[in-house]
């Protein structure tokens, strides 16, 4: 096909325009979307007096806000509490889910189909709904205001979704490798721990980190179980120390930058798996 030069030129300009228009729109969106984040980063290193100034470029750079944060608040304690709760919660969830998912994927037993169905249906019951009961139960078994109570709730409520996700992953691993292990005289526990578990490790890591992110981010459940400044997780602590906003703003900015960091690092180092796994997970239910 041969076009006249003017047509070719027109096509070229059209492509050029479309690329740069796309680029422009994307840059503008990025700026709008990132505005609060940039603002926080700037506020956190600005001198105290310019806390609500309307410039986005700080005039005097200081680390005072970060130092204040460590000296005047219990931020480090909150981080520590969050670390305990999220790590233990995710580990416990892993322990409970992998064995369950493996059983649903590999073994035959009575009630398997009904069990799977119940697993799906339980996903429909968000913890939002049962919050009063969870609170009363925690009080009743004397785990109110303990990390253990929160850890148990976190791990337990996430099982149905995680187990469903992981069972699918186990299903996608060919059974032949385990079969040959059985022929070599391995038992089911060895087949699980020595073969299936390592093969499933990528998925297990993703589920583990995803749980960590969501536990770290939880305000709702933590707010009914934990009370008192010393017990707060980051999410709780951040909410309560913002109360006199004007005074604490730069310190709050510093805190939110630090509080976001671990999660951002986890998210981006695993974004390929997280984004793929979660968007697919949501589409598959």
């Amino acid at each position: 096909m041969s076009h006249s030069p003017s047509v070719r030129l027109k096509k070229k300009t059209r492509i050029f325009l479309s690329i740069n228009l796309t680029r422009l729109l994307l840059i503008i969106t990025c700026m709008v979307v990132l505005f609060p984040i940039i603002w926080m980063a700037t506020a956190s290193i600005s001198k105290g007096s310019s806390l609500f100034s309307s410039t986005i470029i700080p005039k005097n750079i200081t680390l005072k806000n970060y130092i204040n944060l460590f000296e005047k608040t219990k931020f480090i304690k909150w981080i520590r509490n969050s670390a305990i709760v999220t790590l233990c919660g995710s580990l416990l969830a892993l322990l409970e889910t992998t064995t369950m998912a493996y059983a649903f994927s590999r073994f035959r037993f009575k009630g398997k189909k009904n069990g799977l169905m119940i697993l799906i249906l339980l996903q429909m019951l968000p913890a939002t709904v049962t919050i009063v009961a969870l609170y009363k139960l925690a009080v009743f078994i004397q785990l109110q205001n303990t990390f253990l109570g929160l850890i148990l709730i976190y791990a337990g409520t996430t099982i149905p979704f995680n187990a469903w996700l992981m069972r699918g992953y186990f299903d996608s691993i060919p059974f032949e490798i385990e079969e040959s292990a059985y022929l070599d005289g391995a038992n089911h526990w060895q087949a699980f721990t020595k073969i299936a578990f390592p093969l499933c490790l990528p998925m297990i890591v993703v589920v583990f980190l995803f749980n960590m992110i969501s536990f770290y981010n939880d305000y709702y459940l933590a707010s009914i179980i934990l009370s008192g400044n010393d017990r707060y997780t980051v999410a709780l602590g951040m909410r309560f120390f913002t109360q006199p906003y004007a005074e604490n703003w730069p310190m709050f900015a510093a805190a939110s930058i630090l509080a976001c960091l671990p999660i951002v690092v986890i998210f981006y180092s695993l974004q390929r798996y997280l984004v793929q796994g979660l968007t697919k997970g949501a589409l598959k239910g």
Binding site: T97, F107, F109, G115, L125, A133, L134, L137, G156, I159
Partner: peptide
């Protein structure tokens, strides 16, 4: 006879589900 070991794999998860979802659900 169908073996019972699969239920041992299910036990930790089921216990957790019982206490964090099913009992609270019934209580609600």
């Amino acid at each position: 006879r169908k073996p019972i070991y699969p239920y041992f794999y299910l036990l930790p998860g089921l216990t957790a589900i019982l206490f964090s979802i099913i009992i609270p659900g019934a209580m609600t």
